[in-house]
Design a protein around this nucleic acid. Sequence first.
DNA 1: AAGTGTGAACCTCTTCACAGCA
DNA 2: TGCTGTGAAGAGGTTCACACTT
Lengths: 212, 212
Amino acid sequence: MKLPEKTIERLSEYRRTLYNCLSNGKTHIYSHELANLHSNTAVQVRRDLMLIGFSSMTKKGYDVKELIDLISRILDNKEGQNVAVLGMGNLGKAITAYFNGKRSKLNIKATFDIDPEKIGTLQSGVMCHNIDRFEEIVKQENITIAVITASPNSAPLLAEVIEKAGIKGVLNFTSTPINFSDNIYHEEYDMITSLEKVAYFVKERSLKKKSV
Amino acid sequence: MKLPEKTIERLSEYRRTLYNCLSNGKTHIYSHELANLHSNTAVQVRRDLMLIGFSSMTKKGYDVKELIDLISRILDNKEGQNVAVLGMGNLGKAITAYFNGKRSKLNIKATFDIDPEKIGTLQSGVMCHNIDRFEEIVKQENITIAVITASPNSAPLLAEVIEKAGIKGVLNFTSTPINFSDNIYHEEYDMITSLEKVAYFVKERSLKKKSV
DNA sequence: AAGTGTGAACCTCTTCACAGCA
DNA sequence: TGCTGTGAAGAGGTTCACACTT
């Protein structure tokens, strides 16, 4: 079963919303309800569920618990995956804290930095190591995913270390794009770009309004 | 001139890369060079430049400085736009610090929180205010864009405050999606979703490899 | 009547294939 | 020859329109 990238993203978001529903005692949900919670359309929700083979055919809406279970069977693998965060600045801390104590099959097992003040300390219960121990700890903790939150200029060095350690997936928050070899799945996310994009569309809209 | 969303994102990224080129004394760049720096194709780069009406027609590649100027004329507006950050946790600090001292037409003018320990302090040179002064300061500082980095459960409250203050664009890093009225351009970015997506594709690839 | 499931149309974005230029 | 510019094809994603179910 080959699922579209966008559907995967939405499934992750739906799942979180569905957990909230459960906490609020809501056991069934309509496609249009789930859509509204995501600034999305009911058709899109139904299409996504169709793609993963979920169906209800009752007028009560979708069973929340069953849907969570199915999404989890798709997104997670049984054993879970272990994650390392590279760079313990504010962003690294934010991500580590964010994950800590979340029900999730993704476990942040170690963090890394070069600053002696940070090395050896705990951040949200996770130990910070010297980056030169990266490969060693990746093997020891069976880490498959790396999140890069270090400064842009350290990106090339980190790329090398990550390749060498046999990491399988990378999420790069550095504003320096990195080229990885084909056996690493990798996503870039750049907060400056996101903000510049919002700014652009705000500008465009205000121009349009004036010209009407 | 109506430009595709994806092109806008890439232009923002190209511009940053081009500034780096300039700093390194590189005055001309080929489409395939720029592409390589972005895990992208030369055709895509040329297509983007075509869409914004940039052309070189020399064998020396594109003039870096001219291209930066054109991208800036497209992305920025002359006066710049002012930005507020809501939530001065680690993520809020990261974004504020990230922007500080960057050549950019986007200026973070104020930050907001509810924690009395944070209110009244400077973060990377920007003053943190009580959230109940949001509207007042938005007007005073002519702020058009809000970045939400607060905790998920505060999102609904903040949505209301933002609408009321007349904000035009929102970038929401909270894992709770928010519905805004149509006159606010708004983007959601969810770090957990990004990480779950990477994890999913890592898992899928490893399954595929085993089955070969 | 008020929901779900889905083929087909549509729109958006990327890539191919090739002409043109220095 | 080695680059650029671009029409046209292709891939990916969303929405329309409507049949079906309770």
